[in-house]
Design a protein around this nucleic acid. Structure first.
Lengths: 224, 224
DNA sequence: CGTGTTATGGTCACTCTGACCAGAACAGGA
DNA sequence: TCCTGTTCTGGTCAGAGTGACCATAACACG
C-alpha cells in the first residue's frame, strides 16, 4: 500500500540572504544527509494541516507562515527505497528569520549555497524539492506583492529591494526598482513618520507599508 | 489508510473550440454527474504511468499526448465521502481532436461551456480540477510554443491564431498576432510548398512548421 | 466582374524598460 | 568645519514591445 506524506520547504529572508530550513532524516540509514521536514498524512487531516504539523514537530516552528502553498507531488516508485511513499511537497515562507528548536536537529542554510550541493547530500529526492521551492519563490516575486510580507512594516524601498536581490541573487538598479515599485498600483503606500537612514548611513529613506495588492500589474520581471 | 489516485483532464482543440474529456463515474451513487478519468496508483507504478493508464482504460485513448504534466494534488479529507483518497490531478493535451471509445461512456465537452456548469454537476471536486486545467493551458500558451504542437504541421498563421482564440476565448487581431509570432525567435519557421486558402476562401496563406523553441521570448501575453 | 473573405505589410502613439546621470541628505572622520 | 562615503531620489534618453488601425494583395464564388 502506498503511503502519503507531506514535505515542506520553509524559506525566509535572513540578513539579506534567502535561507531554507533543513532537518536530519529520522531513519538511521540516512545519517549524514539533510532533508526537509515531512510527516505522514493522518486519515482525518488536510494536506495543509500536515505541512504545519511537520514544521511544528520537527523544527519547533509554530508561527503561522506568510505563504503556504503546494509545489508538486513526487511519486516515483523508487524515491524512498524502504517503501512506496507519495510525497506532496509544500512551499512555506516565513515573515522573519527562522529560529528552529535545536532539540530535533534542524539548521538554517543559505539557499544559494544549498543549490550547489550534489543531490547525494540530501535524503530521498529532496534536492529537487528544494530547487523547485526556490524557483517558485523567485517566480512569485515577479507577479505578486509577496516581498512586502517578508519584511516588518514599515520598510524602506532599499530594504524591499534587498529582498528581491536576495531571492533573485543579483544586484538591481535602485532608481529603476524604485520607479517600478511606485508605478505599480497597490504595491506599497507611504507611511507617515520620519525618514530613517540605514546601518551604512546614507540619505534617510522614506518608509512604506504594504499596499494591499496581491497581484502586480505590471509585473516586476527579473532578468533571464 | 489513505489511498492515492490520479485524475486526468485531457484537453484538445476540435473545430476551433477547446474541449475536455469527461467520463461517467463508476460508483452508482454518483450517476448523473460527470467526472475526469481517474485510477488508483499501483504500488510499482509512477504517477505519470497511472495517468496514461486512466486515459486508456476509461476512454480508450492510447495515443501519446502532446503534454502531460501535474496540476496539483487535491487532498481534503472529505472530498470523497466513501474513503480518504488523495488525488494527484494531471493536465494532458492531445494534438488532434478526441475520439474516445464509447464503451465506457465518455464524452467530449466544450471547455468554455463546462466552466459555466455548477459544481454539483461534477463528481467529487472535479469541477475545480477542470477549471485549474483550463487555466493552466491558457497560461502555457502565453509562455511556451505549445500551440504549434496542437496543430498538424504545416499550418498557417491563421490556424495558429485560431488555436489561441479557442483557448483564450476571444478574438485576436490577425496583423498583430502575425507580427508577434514572427518576431519571436524559434516559434515558427516557413515551410516550403505552396500557399493555400482556408475553407472560407480568402487570400492563400503561407504555411509554417514548429520552430523548435519551447519557451517564448518575448511572451505572447493575453489581455486580462 | 464585382463582392466577400482572409492574409500580409505598414503606421502611429503609447507604455515599459535598462542604462545612466546628478543632486539631496545623512554619518563619520580628518 | 570640511571632506568623503553612502544611500536615496528624481530625472533623461534610446530602444523594445504593444494595441488600434488602415490599406493592399490574393484568392473563391456568384
Amino acid at each position: 500500500m502506498t503511503a502519503v506524506a507531506v514535505d515542506v520547504a520553509l524559506l525566509a529572508i535572513d540578513a539579506g540572504r534567502l535561507t531554507v530550513l533543513l532537518v536530519e532524516p529520522e531513519p538511521p540509514a540516512l545519517a549524514g544527509t539533510w532533508s526537509l521536514p515531512g510527516r505522514r498524512v493522518r486519515d482525518d487531516e488536510s494536506l495543509d494541516a500536515t505541512a504545519l504539523r511537520a514544521l511544528g514537530e520537527l523544527a519547533g516552528i509554530e508561527r503561522p507562515t506568510v505563504l503556504l502553498e503546494q509545489l508538486r507531488t513526487y511519486g516515483e516508485p523508487t524515491r524512498d527505497p524502504r517503501a512506496r511513499v507519495v510525497s506532496v511537497a509544500y512551499l512555506a515562507l516565513a515573515g522573519s528569520p527562522l529560529h528552529p528548536s535545536p532539540a530535533p536537529r534542524a539548521v538554517v542554510a543559505d539557499a544559494a549555497e544549498v543549490l550547489t550541493w550534489p543531490a547525494e547530500r540530501f535524503a530521498y529526492d529532496h534536492a529537487a524539492i528544494v530547487a523547485d521551492a526556490i524557483e517558485r519563490v523567485r517566480s512569485r516575486l515577479e507577479y505578486t506583492a509577496l516581498a512586502t510580507a517578508l519584511l516588518p512594516a514599515p520598510f524602506t524601498l532599499g530594504e524591499l529591494r534587498r529582498v528581491h536581490e536576495a531571492v533573485w541573487g543579483g544586484p538591481l538598479d535602485p532608481a529603476n526598482f524604485r520607479r517600478k515599485v511606485l508605478a505599480t498600483p497597490g504595491f506599497v503606500v507611504p507611511a507617515d513618520g520620519p525618514a530613517v537612514a540605514g546601518p551604512a548611513g546614507g540619505r534617510p529613506a522614506r518608509r512604506y507599508v504594504p499596499g494591499g495588492a496581491t497581484r502586480l500589474h505590471p509585473a516586476m520581471l527579473r532578468d533571464r
